[in-house]
Design a protein around this nucleic acid. Structure first.
Lengths: 176, 176
DNA sequence: AACCGATGCCTGTCTGAACAAGTAAATATG
DNA sequence: CATATTTACTTGTTCAGACAGGCATCGGTT
């Protein structure tokens, strides 16, 4: 019971939450956290359903987008670009390779590394992927004016920046 | 939609993104989606690190919070409360049981169901879990006034509502 | 009573994500 | 040149989440 009631006097149960958004008091201690959690979940679910149609799993499309745009990359580069994990990238690339969307070529300058490049077959997906992203964006930002979208984006980035800073801050308990 | 028109758009620069937020043009087609994605990722990571200290994995704490608050529940109830999956719940409960945080008791009225209840040992975690949630909330909303927090919460809920509505909307391509 | 659909739960499979550990090559250092 | 150290990648393990399928029970109907 940190602050179950925001100072602004918002009725907890009265926030017009639809039935599909169960907000038991369990989450009262972190309303924003809980909202992020739910939004992220829904968002990911939608992304998954859009991607499923084009034969990709969530996460894979990001790899492909970077490859399409930047050309062949080493796995390390992809890891850095996506802020992902080397182990995850290894397996994701393996699955993309198995699915025929990427190919591996040994790096000419480094025997440890291999260059990942999109296959011709993959380019057929590019449009659909970009379209899906636009579609998702329209879904999530439906009914928002350009101004409101900008504001929403700022809000999200503000929250993100808080976490980014906290990660870099030594006082943070979650510091790596 | 179609505002993206990323076909030739080499116009990344724009939004003055900070250095720690790699926003290659790949995400230009869905800035809000991308922001949600990144925020969620960071947020989850922090939650994971906070929870790790108290021996729980992300997701498990939600189950426990509901059990602490509502008392013994059937798995189906937990699934509905968390808007989760029956299969996932089965395994999550198994792990919580194995970890000694919950116990299973056959339902007196339904031979199919069992009641999941928190163990005495689990109650020792309750405070820490709630504290972690507060801590996470403070991290993610650091530097925001009460007003700004309310606004941020509204923004998140607005986006969520858009997705919820889209899910219910027959015109939605992502309909089940 | 017999049937049948709905419900509660479980298992298998596949995916991403994270952590730990290990291999091989490149690079720096002695 | 020989030895560390760093880098690139792989593998193993564990977890959540989603989907498909299966089994037992419950309920309502016939």
């Amino acid at each position: 019971m940190t602050q179950s009631t925001p100072a602004t006097g918002k009725e907890p149960a009265g926030t017009g939450q639809s039935a599909s958004v169960p907000v038991p008091a369990a989450a009262g201690g972190g309303p924003i956290s809980h909202a992020i959690f739910r939004l992220a979940r829904l968002h990911r679910m939608f992304a998954g359903q859009l991607l499923r149609r084009i034969g990709l799993h969530p996460g894979q499309e990001l790899v492909m987008m970077h490859l399409w745009e930047l050309g062949p990359q080493r796995q390390t580069d992809l890891v850095r670009l996506l802020d992902s994990d080397a182990a995850t990238m290894t397996r994701t690339v393996q699955r993309l390779e198995q699915a025929g969307f990427v190919r591996r070529r040994p790096s000419p300058t480094d025997k440890r590394a291999s260059l990942i490049e999109p296959t011709a077959a993959s380019h057929a997906l590019r449009r659909e992927v970009e379209q899906s992203w636009s579609q998702l964006e329209d879904l999530v930002a439906a009914g928002l004016t350009a101004d409101e979208r900008t504001t929403a984006l700022h809000t999200l980035e503000r929250l993100e920046q808080n976490l980014v800073q906290a990660a870099a801050d030594p006082t943070c308990a979650a510091g790596s």
